[in-house]
Design a protein around this nucleic acid. Structure first.
Lengths: 210, 210
DNA sequence: CCTGTGCAGTAACAATGGTTACAGAAGTAT
DNA sequence: ATACTTCTGTAACCATTGTTACTGCACAGG
């Protein structure tokens, strides 16, 4: 755990802070598909992502989903921080998109460290900043783009975070993330294939040139 | 200015901090419609809203607009704070929805006060928290609601922040805020009128029962 | 009072996305 | 191999939203 922490966060946190994190944090290793957080769950800890990718989803009353963004190594979940200050209930769902390693820090330490460590303060502010912009860009996509553009953006982003030009998803799964329907996604994917931008297979697709 | 500050922020900021704000802050009074911030502008100060309502808009490359949320008294603009940490360029446009009074604080003080005053730290964190949730709810509206529901929500919210059941907007203006077209909004408003929920007039409309 | 400008009402039509239904292909279990 | 399940392809259709075009009305300014 110390090794992981130092590798990923050694450059931005003071040694003293790293030591504190090691003392109170708990290491967690989760497999792909593991649900880290459900909407309405009480938030008890704040995650520091060491490796892997976490996908953050929003859901409405009817159970309709929407992918908000991915967390990558070095990221933390601002939503969690935001929750620490409100009623402590999560507004989002978090699923491991790949196998992932992370350290959970009790939220009680948040304020203490914010006062004590400048690096922690900067980290927290920076996380908020990044997440706010990420949300803004998600909003842009939904508000200003049509489904075909959103789909292309989705495929690109997914390839980027997983570092893999093979997208291991069914059409139905993509439809959930984009809050659309399977038929619509199949239709658009077929068009992309006709344009030689992707190649379709069962249970996965290859990105050729987006 | 001291009076305004104390009235609005006296309960949450230490006296010492209030004094500092008075020293470095500049008081600003702007009329309805005044553009406080344009997309791409360099952010030099952080606003503390004393009275009035500020509307925060997002715009894409094609000039299509979208209302993000309103700032009310006691609010500050987290986007501004976020900008202070990035490239300092604004991601949003800010327009005074009503006459408004505010105090501009130089962004250089941000970090200093964050280390020095617990109340300031809480204020900043809280602002981020509120804004993140506000953005999330805006996203929900756009992603999960149809235009008729969004329109009703828009009218309600606008009535709430302006404390006025008369909405002083043309159909075109509403269309801009919702990123729709005038004809669509006219159509839906007419339906709402038929349902006795509103009463239409030239240049304004009355909310009867939403 | 007349006229120009901007606002609102409406119809006809297009485009996008969502729904239903069904068939066939690929993989899995028996 | 056979049966079953899951995934994909496709067609037909519908609903919502957006577009274009034209109308008349209200109001401001001469």
């Amino acid at each position: 755990m110390i090794q992981d922490l130092t590798t990923e966060y050694g450059k931005i946190f003071e040694e003293e802070l790293i030591n504190e994190i090691v003392q109170v944090g708990t290491f967690k290793e989760v497999p792909e598909g593991y649900k880290l957080m459900e909407i309405g769950d009480y938030v008890r800890g704040m995650p520091l992502l060491i490796s892997g990718v976490i996908k953050i989803l929003r859901e409405d009353e009817d159970g309709d989903e929407l992918l908000l963004y991915y967390l990558e190594k070095g990221d933390t979940c601002s939503m969690t921080m935001a929750c620490c200050m409100g009623d402590n209930k999560s507004e989002i769902r978090a699923i491991a998109e790949t196998d992932a390693k992370l350290i959970m820090v009790p939220i009680q330490k948040m304020e203490e460290w914010t006062a004590k460590y400048k690096s922690w303060r900067n980290f927290v502010f920076n996380s908020y900043h990044v997440r706010l912009n990420e949300l803004l860009s998600t909003l842009d996509n939904i508000a200003f783009q049509k489904m075909d553009e959103r789909l292309i953006g989705y495929l690109k982003e997914k390839a980027r975070v997983t570092k893999d030009d093979i997208i291991h998803s069914t059409h139905q799964e993509i439809a959930y993330d984009l809050h659309s329907s399977r038929v619509v996604i199949s239709r658009l994917l077929k068009k992309l294939e006709e344009m030689k931008k992707i190649k379709l297979h069962r249970n996965y697709l290859e990105i050729l040139d987006l």
